[in-house]
Amino acid sequence: MNEQTTAAPGPVVRLIEEFHKLPGVGPKSAQRLTYYLLRMPVAEARALAEAILEVKERIIFCATCQNVTDTNPCRICDGDRRDRSMVCVVEEPMDTLAVERSGSYQGLYHVLHGAISPMDGIGPEELKIEELLARLRGDEVSEVILATNPNLEGEATAMYLTRLLRPLGVKVTRLARGLPMGGDLEYADDVTLTRAMEGRQEVEQ
């Protein structure tokens, strides 16, 4: 923290520090956000604080697909117009939003909450893989679409899942290569994502 910050009153410093902990928020942005909030009407500030608390208190993980939700099962798992024979496996909850937005998919999801990253010590046991296998033990699901990110960790995760899923006799497909290597799924545009979904291919291995 620089001098300007340490000269500020305690509560201001505290809020700056809290903002600074957020992803993508540097010390400058943390200050800017804090001083913006200081000028905000009390009602708005309260609404923001309540929204944060509500997220923490009301949002849970769907016991089936592990996505964030306020109902269990979530609206997608519970939806009667979804194709229950397909499960699209993604790394993060935000990835389901990207696929939903593209409108190219009507099946169910499974959120892993991460990707295998051996150098960072993130192995399969850190991900929601057991939960995925449990879903596949019934015979409702016939296709699993691996929609992990097209980067090294995402590919490693897809290869690992393929090894586990193949013996279960389920069809395993991977999004088509239209997505550029290294990009994150959450940033993919709808057209690219739709094309990747439609062009998905069965994994050989």
């Binding site: 290294g182 990009g183 994150d184």
Partner: peptide, 16 residues
């Protein structure tokens, strides 16, 4: 900007 899918560099900068 390499996590954006429009980045031209991201594919070249994968580990290994």
């Amino acid at each position: 900007g390499v996590r954006k899918t429009t980045s031209r560099m991201s594919g070249h900068l994968q580990p290994l």
